[in-house]
Amino acid sequence: MNTSYVMSSSPHMRSDETVTKIMRDVIIALVPAGVIGVYFFGPRALMHIIITVAACIASEWAYNKITKKGYNTIGDLSAVVTGILLAYNLPVAAPLWIGLVGGAFAIIVVKQFFGGLGQNFMNPALAARAFLFSWAVIMTTWTAPHTVLPIFATPATDAIATATPLVALKAGQIPDAGLFNLFIGNVGGCIGETSALCLLIGGAYLVIRKVISVRIPLAFILTVAVLTLIFARGNNNLEFMLSHILSGGLMLGAIFMATDYATSPVTKKGQIIFGIGCGLLTVFIRYFGSYPEGVSYSILLMNACVWLIDTHTKPKAFGEGAKK
């Protein structure tokens, strides 16, 4: 009689869902925004993406090696996602070393120092972006679409600088670019944030694949919409509101950054509160902050509240409070 059978507590079967598959879906969803980013901002944009992804993978690999983890986590593709998101949050004219610094900071300091995937309390790409604001001029020098930039050399900033639509909105004006250009992404801004259309396509893919639910993005965007409609500046409320929604990093933030698993609530109610909180803070910063964009900081601030939100939004267990 064989007595070396595996003993274990049920269940004895698992779904074929893996972290790698989820991350692969996120990467696929990010492709349209990247393609249009490269189309509008040129091959230098692609170079940024390659460098940040490489920096993130290398940092992940090196950290696992140095700390003798005994396994390597680059295979789960989460470092690739962080790398892509970081590149999407960079202005195309930034020097290439900025992606190296940002990638290393995102993975080593923000993610691994706090315990690795799932344990970090702030979105690595966003926290790295905030860190990179140590070089404020670099991070706020925007380029108009279709400007020809060198692939490797750093362009002189004064020659290429343009204003983003958010600057106009801050002054209470409708951006000159017009809603259509805002929608397809033909405006100045970070590499992957300008095209609402492509980001929405990616978001729809994630929802269909059940990687994310619509709760956080919808609550986030709706909150911004309602507030900018009520407190519109200028004389066309609707156009002002739509410009706000389509400008800056709102779509990228709401769909891809605020939905980051590790740094958003897990409860349904919590996700809605989180989305509303992000929306409130975004509008607050956009209206009253010294910097015209508020999406990154609003998400980072809400990241810090996730545990509080989660522990106070426990759903009712099935049968709890049920009456005869």
Partner: peptide, 26 residues
């Protein structure tokens, strides 16, 4: 081949277990 022996187990907080729990637990 059919025995489930994961090399490493970790939570990425994806919430799939929460959506699937038939008792609406976390």
């Amino acid at each position: 081949k059919s025995v489930d022996r994961p090399k490493r187990t970790y939570c990425i907080r994806c919430g799939k277990c929460i959506a699937a729990c038939p008792m609406n637990l976390l």
